[in-house]
Design a binder for these strands. Structure first.
Lengths: 331, 331
DNA sequence: GTGAAAGCGCTAACAT
DNA sequence: ATGTTAGCGCTTTCAC
């Protein structure tokens, strides 16, 4: 790989001048500029982002970190798509890390990201009070949280109105005539699991239905826990007539169990899922779902992050997007 | 962020000694080692990967690049999961780029990756004769191709037996009694589209069924082209009685069209898709599919890449994994 | 066993 | 308009 020095030598100038034409600052003679540009072409020179990054924290290295909990979950994939698209448009590359809901892994990735000297970070933190992350924020790293917040910290947050989203889903089930509605939740530690439970409870209450503990099950936010917890619910002496599932993967798992038991949806058991997917209409049956604007979340996050990089002093924003109930035939 | 210098100062030694204890090479007195370790703890020192990377090409920077065509496609997401898992186990971080089948974007990302001084690259190239990529390989960057190869180049390749996979699917359809079988393919430029067509043709031939041009449609490998090309096929005066779809997204798109037209599967039209998904059994109807071992592909790629990083001279390997036909009820 | 110093590729202040 | 140089944080050779 040719270096700036090589270019300078070939063009018969100093590296400073090369740097000037590269970054387009400072005056430089048209003739020398041409010479240098030719040398760059000839040598197929490409500036080293690494050296640039090392040199000055002050200048943008055009590298963003993204740290997400679970790439298996199509919701996060969509968020990622949004992030990737807008980052690309703004000339940022992305270093993507997936911690699979594993806190140890998250910590390692945070350290790596830090030591890669990224310009900013988009993260869905494992815990709302992650100490390492909080420290990084305090140390001045621009951070935007998605899907989950970070307590007592100076970060922008992009999320969705989980309470209302869950409320709408459960209320819709009740209005459709279902009486015993279960909720299969994700990890207890994740705020959205709790917020969705809150919405669930509110809907019951608003319709005068008593809350029953046995109808709410917390799992680990993955496919398998959807399978198993649904199994548990259906085995109840007094099983539910409808299920509200806490995320994409759980929905798919629950569906699997229901199909295995040859139950009809929605006649035997209705289901409404949190998170819509592009192919939810091709599921059996087409799934009624609470749609989060995942791509939009990703884009907004990048937007806020770039703003913060450019102006670290600007006060923080909490952006709450709305969910939308997509009515199909599973309920 | 504390630097090595800070640590050295605090421990009252030179940076060389700090470097020695950090990298565990060269002798160093137990007492000084202790002092240094304490200083590291006190300052929460973290080495800069950037500086390390800049300093020496010779040493591993523990950074791998991954360049994939389409993160919307669950197949690539699974490959990515495999990559991520094994990379993590081997202490590598990943810089992930998604070029969305856009060659311009691919080129930009290749340049970025290069200038980030990655240790190695896993890529599913847009074209088999990508000149920039070929140059990077020639310049000594360790590269492993997945899903697609790179012509005349010294790279390891991990892929799947596309011909046999397609053959099995189409042969299965024929054996099940279908006579007019269509193939909705992905982009013509992508080798796997062609190889799967080859398998499709071979199966027709083996069963004495004439090839009909109007039954094969090439699209852009995305959901939307699945929707549209399926529409075209169903509108034919003599429409197919079965469809073989060239990838995940196409399958989902085709399914959407079939459902929109209220056709029964498989009575009115059967479908077998290339690529299985975790939730294919929850589709309507459960999808018969050609399963690629996507996670395995990712893992193998990392394995080969790390080997190549450690021994650039080792001769190249082309690893072909088998597909598996998962019989469900869409055919 | 430890330190001094060169250098990786670049930017930016200072000279000329 | 252009060149010289210090320095970003680290590794590594060569002294001591």
């Amino acid at each position: 790989m040719a270096s700036m020095n090589d270019v300078a030598t070939r063009a018969g100038v100093s590296i400073a001048t090369v740097s000037r034409v590269l970054n387009n600052n400072g005056n430089v003679n048209e003739a020398t500029r041409a010479k240098i540009n030719k040398a760059i072409k000839d040598l197929k020179y490409q500036p080293s982002r690494v050296a640039k990054r090392l040199r000055s924290k002050s200048i943008s290295s055009n590298l963003l970190g993204v740290l997400i909990p679970d790439i298996e979950n199509p919701f996060y994939v969509d968020v990622l798509r949004g992030i990737e698209e807008l980052a690309y448009n703004n000339n940022y590359a992305i270093i993507m890390c997936n911690f699979g809901q594993d806190e140890k892994k998250e910590k390692l990735y945070l350290e790596i990201l830090q030591s890669e000297a990224i310009d900013g970070l988009i993260v869905a933190p494992a815990r709302e009070d992650d100490p390492l992350l909080k420290k990084m924020v305090k140390d001045g790293l621009p951070v935007v949280c998605v899907d989950r917040g970070l307590k007592d910290s100076n970060v922008d947050v992009v999320l969705v109105d989980n309470v209302t989203g869950a409320f709408t889903a459960v209320d819709y089930l009740i209005k459709s005539g279902y009486k015993r509605i279960a909720y299969i939740a994700g990890l207890v530690e994740i705020p959205s699991s709790l917020l969705r439970e809150k919405g669930y409870r509110k809907a019951l209450e608003a319709n005068g239905i008593p809350f029953e503990k046995e109808l709410v099950r917390f799992g680990d936010s993955k496919h398998k826990s959807g399978v198993e917890l649904c199994e548990e619910l259906l085995k109840l002496t007094n099983p539910p007539d409808a299920i509200f599932t806490g995320n994409n993967l759980i929905t798919l798992g629950a569906l699997e169990t229901i199909h295995k038991r040859k139950l009809r949806i929605p006649e035997d058991i209705a289901i409404v899922g949190f998170d819509d997917m592009q192919w939810s209409s091709s599921l059996n049956p087409p799934l009624t779902a609470v749609r989060q604007p995942a791509i939009e979340i990703g884009k907004r996050a990048v937007e806020l992050l770039i703003q913060r990089i450019q102006d670290p002093e600007r006060s923080c924003i909490q952006m709450t997007l709305n969910t939308q109930l997509i009515e199909r035939s599973s309920s």
